[in-house]
């Protein structure tokens, strides 16, 4: 036996006593496509979001504000974009001012990183644990989410609560997008629709979340004693079925909303007003 074969023999499907089969998997379908697509979309999003978080400009075009920079809480925010004041001031590291986006993005980032659906997606595609069902993973040891840092996944509900606050703020941003650049109400543009769609997708993503399902009624043992919460639980359960869809749509939606605001703010396109 080669050294590799010796290692194989010690673990998993190659353990002593199990059927002697040398292949890591006998699957004949294209099981690698799904993790590959997941990696592609995630990496694209990470690159774009990182670029935008550090760009520190082109995130506000009255009345539109990018979801990456909302709420803008720093004194370095461009004029008119700090709808909720500037409590953070202007923090800097090594002489560089910290982007206002970084104070905000940490919450949706935490929410999505600890999301039960995304966990499945990135454990499979990035960590290959496992890459697909009945495809042997490459790791020698596995402890799951029992110790640091992965035990922190249990903090998902705190990011869920923070996400709700951000959803309210992004809904506010969509509502004030019914103003025109002069600040007059009763107008609607393509940007209004983009921000409205973004807020809707984020609410659907949050409302279909497993933690939401648990909080709203899943933790109960006697549904009959809590009829209103039971009803709410059944609605959230139906939404929960589509949680992966909402996860993807809202991820792409938030990137597109930012991209649209960037194009408007940079002058690359004009925000068309319907009325």
């Amino acid at each position: 036996m080669t050294a590799m074969d010796t290692n194989k023999a010690k673990t998993g499907v190659f353990s002593a006593g199990r059927a002697l089969i040398t292949d890591r998997t006998l699957r004949t379908d294209k099981w690698w496509i799904q993790p590959l697509i997941t990696v592609g979309v995630f990496v694209s999003f990470i690159i774009y979001a990182t670029f935008r978080a550090f760009e520190k400009q082109n995130y506000f075009a009255e009345p539109l504000i990018s979801p990456f920079y909302s709420p803008c809480l720093s004194t370095v925010c461009v004029e008119g974009s700090a709808h909720f004041g500037t409590p953070i001031g202007a923090l800097s590291i090594f002489g560089m001012v910290i982007s206002p986006a970084l104070f905000i993005l940490i919450f949706p980032l935490g929410f999505r990183l600890t999301c039960y659906y995304y966990r499945k997606a990135y454990y499979r595609s990035f960590w290959m644990s496992p890459p697909a069902c009945a495809v042997a993973e490459p790791h020698k040891k596995y402890t799951g989410e029992t110790r640091a840092p992965l035990i922190l996944q249990n903090g998902h509900r705190w990011f869920f609560y923070a996400g709700l606050v951000l959803n309210i703020i992004l809904t506010y941003d969509a509502v004030i997008a019914f103003k025109n650049p002069e600040g007059e109400w009763g107008h609607m543009s393509v940007g209004t629709l983009v921000l409205l769609a973004n807020a809707t997708f984020l609410w659907l993503y949050s409302a279909s979340c497993h933690t939401c399902r648990h909080t709203i009624g899943g933790r109960l043992r006697n549904f009959s004693a809590h009829p209103v919460r039971y009803k709410a639980w059944t609605i959230v359960s139906k939404l929960n079925h589509y949680h992966p869809n909402f996860a993807w749509v809202s991820l792409i939606g938030v990137a597109f909303a930012d991209f649209y605001v960037r194009q408007v703010a940079s002058g690359a396109i004009t925000n068309f007003y319907f009325f």
């Binding site: 499979r124 596995y142 799951g144 029992t146 497993h210 899943g218």
Partner: peptide, 30 residues
């Protein structure tokens, strides 16, 4: 806590029990 909810159990269940969504994740939340 060892379960990292990759949902393979749900995928193979011939009774279509939503093992991960309806049992494991609710238990993790509890």
């Amino acid at each position: 806590g060892m379960c990292n909810i990759t949902k393979c159990c749900t995928e193979v269940c011939p009774e279509h029990i939503r093992i991960t969504d309806n049992a494991i994740i609710p238990m993790k939340e509890r």
